[in-house]
Design a protein around this nucleic acid. Structure first.
Length: 362
DNA sequence: GACCCGTGGTG
DNA sequence: TCACCAAGGGT
């Protein structure tokens, strides 16, 4: 199915020419004009952005990237941060193991590499939270190494360029070999970013803009009319529905009962309301003795592999009450933005009900 | 390879 | 409303 006229050097040249004219301006990016003028990206910012961008859109990442770089302008500054502060700033971005590994990685770079990111693939791969994709991307973008970057964008672009119908993930080795042949010796960093920009703006998952694509002539899927159908993917399993409950206790002074979740597992390391496990139909004793009231309504939330329906309970507790789980956090120390989204939804449900007082209709 | 791990946008 | 999707990594 390969187009014999699709010379890799010509493809790469056409792609770089398009990138020079249409590169997205991104907060962590050194654009093609600056790069040609000799400007080099800050490896810390490249690394931070790549971790944030794992399975996450540019639109979602941008505000987080600005906050993180303002609070912690260097890897040394980040390494010195408190765990809770970093987890709180990451709240809402998801995949919280990334934040835990972000801190681990910063502390290794500071403690074992003198605060300087290593510039070789193997050393990068050995760092927490950096896998094959991120190691290759940091090498290419931060150090302009001729690494082959294989993310979801590149898989899509290459599968269409060569009209590959093998479903993912089985197609990965084949796609990687094809992508490697496209990687140029000159400007590999810009090439990697050009592939991603093409995938994000032209060669999109649905209704790709083939008419204005710089690779439309050599593209095999464009010729075959199969571009919108690629890449094919293995079927996914259905998500089961789980249920559970959380307890929001407020002390007279306004302090709220919260707990730090264990590092492993769902929402690991994040702040949350004490509650039951989540499963078929779980009931559990409250974290503190009180008159618990079931709030009207429910929280619905979807995780990677299940749907959750959450019942929210609330109680006003006495000043001296000793909780069996969690700890009371003072009004001034509690920021709703520190909560992962599902816990934030529970908080919002309680607050929206409290605003209307008891006896609310729904 | 299989499974676990979040979230918000989108059609 | 809902399934799909996004600059993946760890186990």
């Amino acid at each position: 199915m390969r187009d014999a006229t699709a010379d890799p050097a010509a493809l790469s040249a056409a792609l770089l020419d398009w990138y020079d004219r249409h590169a997205r301006a991104l907060p962590w990016r050194v654009g093609p004009a600056e790069r040609k003028a000799g400007v080099r990206p800050d490896p810390y910012r490249v690394w931070l952005s790549e971790i944030m961008l794992q399975q996450t859109t540019v639109a979602a990442v941008t505000a987080y990237f600005h906050r993180f770089t303002r609070l912690w302008p260097s890897v040394d500054a980040l390494a010195a941060a408190e765990d809770g502060a970093v987890m709180g700033e990451w709240a809402g971005l998801g995949y919280y193991a990334r934040a835990r590994n972000l801190l681990k990685c910063a502390r290794v770079v500071t403690g074992e590499h003198g605060g300087v990111f290593p510039d070789d693939h193997a050393a990068l791969l050995a760092l927490p939270g950096i896998g094959p994709y991120t190691a290759a991307t940091i090498s290419a973008i931060a150090f302009d190494r001729p690494e082959t970057v294989m993310d979801g964008n590149v898989e899509r672009v290459v599968s269409r360029l060569y009209d590959i119908h093998t479903p993912l993930p089985a197609a990965k080795p084949e796609l990687h070999a094809l992508a490697r042949a496209l990687t140029p010796a000159q400007r590999p960093g810009d090439h990697a970013q050009a592939m991603m920009d093409l995938g994000a703006t032209i060669c999109t998952p649905r209704s790709p803009a083939c008419g204005i694509c710089p690779l439309r002539d050599p593209c095999a899927a464009r010729a075959a009319g199969t571009a919108p159908l690629l890449p094919r993917k293995a079927e996914k399993k259905a998500k089961p529905v789980r249920q559970g409950s959380v307890y929001i206790a407020r002390r007279a002074d306004g302090a709220l009962l919260l707990e730090r979740r264990p590092d492993k597992g769902l929402l690991g390391g994040m702040l949350g309301w004490p509650g039951s496990d989540w499963g078929e139909r779980v009931e559990e004793a409250p974290p503190v003795a009180a008159q618990w009231q079931v709030l009207p309504g429910e929280v619905r939330h979807t995780f990677t592999h299940f749907h959750l329906i959450l019942q929210v309970r609330h109680a006003e507790v006495e000043a001296g009450s000793a909780p069996e789980r969690g700890a009371f956090l003072g009004q001034d120390a509690f920021r709703p933005s520190d909560l992962p989204t599902v816990m934030r939804k529970a908080y919002d449900l309680w607050r929206s009900g409290a605003a209307h007082g008891p006896g609310r209709a729904d």
